[in-house]
Simulated assay, not measured.
Amino acid sequence: MYLDHLVILANDLEAGVAHAEASLGLRPQPGGRHVRFGTHNALLSIGEGLYLEVLAPEPEAQHPGKPRWLGLEGFDGPPRLANWVCATDDLDEALDDAPFAGEPVNLQRGDLRWRIAIPADGRLPMGGAFPTLIQWETQPCGTCLPDRGCRLRSVAIQAPLAREALVAMGGELPDGRVTLTGADAFRISAEIDTPDGPRHLA
């Protein structure tokens, strides 16, 4: 398991993109639609195959009739960094060890194909302490984005179930830049080097 991308959630994609741009000084590029979940996104490389995703409901799309993914169902408030996603080479095996992470869903957008674990209620595994799991069946999305000069420096995650999540990960975090500590509520923030210097994203 290794860090794949970070997710900003927003109720409106343009507002989410503006939040990313205000934080980092760079505007994420248009991504695409996820018809199955009624969402669309924008993307920004943050180096070494990693990327930042801005995710929001698509106004023209009907509600999918089931909870939206990646914690978007019931999301409120201003746009914010709200999720972390880790890739695995074998999603089924990973879910055998962490069944609470969800059920595998097959998705495709253009030439990209991937499988992702989604809990039935659309919420984040362990309240966000445990990452969303993804398996790329094509070249990972992060390797297809232009290099804009951003490099992830660190990710700080605070969550009530931090200790339990660390146990579920075998006692080791998937990336040395990630810290996970206990807290009374879930929070995630990142430090990212940009062409204009280090920036904070939350």
Rank of each mutant, 00 (worst) to 15 (best):
E58T: 09
E60H: 08
E60Y: 05
A61F: 11
A61Q: 14
Q62V: 13
Q62I: 08
H63A: 13
H63T: 09
G65D: 06
G65I: 04
K66D: 02
K66F: 15
R68L: 13
R68M: 14
W69G: 03
G71P: 05
L72M: 10
L72K: 03
L72I: 10
E73W: 05
E73T: 10
G74S: 12
G74I: 10
F75M: 09
D76C: 13
G77H: 04
G77Q: 02
P78S: 14
P79F: 07
L81E: 03
A82D: 08
A82L: 08
N83T: 12
N83E: 14
V85A: 06
C86E: 04
A87W: 01
T88R: 00
T88P: 01
D90Q: 04
E93T: 15
A94E: 03
L95G: 01
D96M: 14
D96T: 15
D96I: 14
D97P: 00
P99L: 14
P99I: 13
F100W: 14
E103R: 11
R109N: 12
R109T: 13
L112P: 00
R113D: 02
R113E: 02
W114H: 02
W114N: 01
I116R: 00
A117Q: 02
A117M: 05
A117W: 00
I118N: 01
P119W: 07
A120D: 12
A120S: 13
D121L: 15
R123S: 14
R123C: 06
L124H: 01
L124G: 03
P125V: 09
G127S: 09
G128H: 06
G128K: 04
P131F: 07
T132C: 10
L133V: 05
I134R: 00
Q135M: 04
E137G: 00
T138G: 07
T138Q: 06
Q139H: 06
P140V: 09
C141I: 12
C144I: 06
L145P: 08
D147K: 11
R148I: 01
R151K: 13
R153F: 00
R153K: 13
S154T: 15
V155T: 04
A156G: 02
I157V: 15
A159N: 09
P160V: 09
P160Y: 11
P160M: 10
L166G: 03
A168N: 06
A168Q: 11
M169S: 09
M169G: 07
G170R: 09
V178D: 02
V178N: 05
V178Y: 03
T179W: 13
G182L: 05
A183W: 04
D184R: 13
F186K: 03
R187H: 15
I188F: 00
S189V: 08
A190K: 01
A190M: 09
A190N: 05
E191N: 11
T194A: 12
P195Y: 15
D196V: 08
D196T: 12
G197W: 14
P198Y: 11
